[in-house]
Design a protein around this nucleic acid. Structure first.
Lengths: 337, 337
DNA sequence: TTGTAGGCGTTATCAG
DNA sequence: CTGATAACGCCTACAA
């Protein structure tokens, strides 16, 4: 540090026998530089171990070089993983990431936006759950925000979303392909609003209809609580329902694992008696016993796209909002074997 | 942003009718400023919504304002949680945090150090596992590094460590207090070197000796693998050992949960037949079934101390290394009821 | 106690 | 194609 930190562009310029502007131009590839000068500069950089000083560059550019990432909880493995990927992708593009937590609450999300502005972060990637409440006086105007996860029905924001319907439909079809006939679904939240829960539930219904299977309202289970224990007790209810259930589509992996534990409490074996499939492919899913089949969205693609979106939004705040859907695939594991 | 970002110190100065230096002095509380001037400045700051520009400040100060945090894996809940706390504590002190991953490998740790220097981060908080390999040519010289987690036997680095011996001893004593007489221990790694495994194992032995219980080498189980499945099979072995075991001390929570699953595979009930206690108090431990008693180090204290250490190390690179141990308490939950 | 001058390292601008 | 100059916003040093 002591040494590295002291080497400046003018040191390099001197070494190469050119002006600092030429060094800058070589580094940033802005204007054409003669082959001769370019090579001398590159050699000087290599020799000296020069590293650009981000503070100076950012000062000059009038930006902070930091983007915010607001998620419900970093402790949660799903968001931990996403944070890790976003950090990597951002670094690759010369940005740092500052992490905020929202607790999945509307107030937390509003606070994250305010905080992000206050800290003069260049923009914010927001894993918003309560999109509908992102209206004034929440300070969303004139600040680069990209939503990651939920969609904005009003189309006001850039967003990148997982394929809720298509993914759940594919999961359901996978169960059908494996021979399941009476497929239950575990959902949650309020199905009157168009939330992630509703979308995933719709995917399940669509698949059943497409494949000519009857939809039976008794096969729809609301998760008892968004916790391991809540999911476990839901699993027990499914085991005791006595409806000939042979497959279960669950709206996310964490809950799916809880459901499997509940099934096992009641002596139901997975996949022997019932097959189970989740959504997200969180890290634990592969090592759970039995390992969990699931909808695997391309997490890195998602992170990279979110970073690209926020950077281009920062560059051009007035362009129309864009929407993207993450590619996905079904991962087949023991739980649906 | 457009607006906030444009307000500079001289805008504030003009508004308050003073010079920029007075504004700077008010903000940084460096020298005494008259009550009158101070109030006008504060009012101007409030009115204008002024925010200091970190790039300019850092450029001037010759630092980056970013510290690195290298952990084995952010996806891991324990490190996710620690990362979250370190980020918060750092922000509180005006620093950003850049996260690196080491994969718990010596090479990864060396790479994190090199990368951290290369990026000109002001310092690095390193959750090192392979401390012994932190020797040249690993570039540790003249760069502020604080170790978090493992100790440096050579005493070359600042470090902050969890109370391996004392914590495990207290855990073991808790089992004894609950009436356990034949207490097994689950450990791992290589007990010939003084690693976290060895220290925790020693804590267990010390407690048994202090309380006058016999130590029986057959009660020492090496975890089959550092994974859920590995721990599970270790749990089965414990269940089948037939040594009258009525308590198990496990070196961390994740493995403890795997062990409990293995015990259950063999019909051993926790805490009915055996009591189990872990170490770390990761987020899942409270919601596991049964909830896991464990050694709870003060995670926030640890994060705050690590940040304080690195900041003071940055300020004074030549002061002698300092060592701290995190305070802890035993959390009693269902698994030892 | 307050203000002035100058420079931290980079890059936009414009002249050469 | 290259270089001199000025400026980004802040703070140390010194002067008033």
């Amino acid at each position: 540090m002591a040494k590295d930190g002291k080497i400046t562009m003018s040191d390099v310029a001197q070494l190469a026998g050119v002006s600092t502007m030429t060094v800058s131009n070589v580094i940033n590839e802005r204007v054409r530089v003669s082959e001769d000068a370019r090579e001398r500069v590159l050699a000087a950089i290599r020799e000296s171990g020069y590293q650009i000083n981000p503070s100076a560059r950012n000062l000059r550019a009038g930006r902070s070089g930091v983007i915010g990432l607001a998620v419900p909880q970093v402790g949660n493995t799903y968001f931990g993983m996403m944070a890790e990927l976003v950090i990597e992708e951002a670094r690759r593009r010369g940005y740092h990431v500052a992490i905020e937590q929202t607790g999945a609450l509307a107030a937390g999300e509003a606070a994250a936006i305010a905080q992000s502005r206050r800290l003069q972060l260049d923009g914010l990637i927001l894993s918003a759950v309560e999109v509908d409440s992102l209206v004034p006086p929440v300070p969303v105007q004139g600040y680069p925000i990209v939503l990651m996860g939920e969609q904005d029905p009003a189309g006001r924001f850039d967003h990148i979303t997982v394929p809720n319907e298509a993914g759940t439909a594919a999961a359901t079809e996978h169960l059908i392909d494996q021979g399941c006939q009476r497929i239950a679904v575990v959902t949650g939240g309020n199905l009157d609003r168009l939330t992630m829960f509703t979308r995933r539930y719709n995917g399940y219904r669509t698949a059943l209809e497409d494949r000519g299977l009857a939809t039976d309202p008794r096969l729809r289970f609301m998760v008892d609580a968004l916790s391991r224990e809540g999911a476990r007790s839901t699993g027990r209810r499914i085991a005791e329902a006595g409806l000939g259930i042979d497959g279960v589509v669950v709206f996310n992996d964490t809950v799916a694992m809880g459901v499997m534990r509940g099934l096992r409490d009641r002596g139901v074996s997975v996949p022997g008696d019932m097959r189970v499939i989740g959504f997200d492919d969180v890290p634990e899913s592969a090592s759970f016993i039995p390992s969990l089949s699931t909808v695997h969205p391309d997490h890195r693609w998602k992170a990279a796209k979110a970073v690209d979106l926020i950077i281009s939004r920062i560059a051009d705040p007035s362009s129309p909002p864009r929407q993207y859907t993450v590619p996905f695939e079904i991962v087949r594991r023991e739980s649906t074997a």
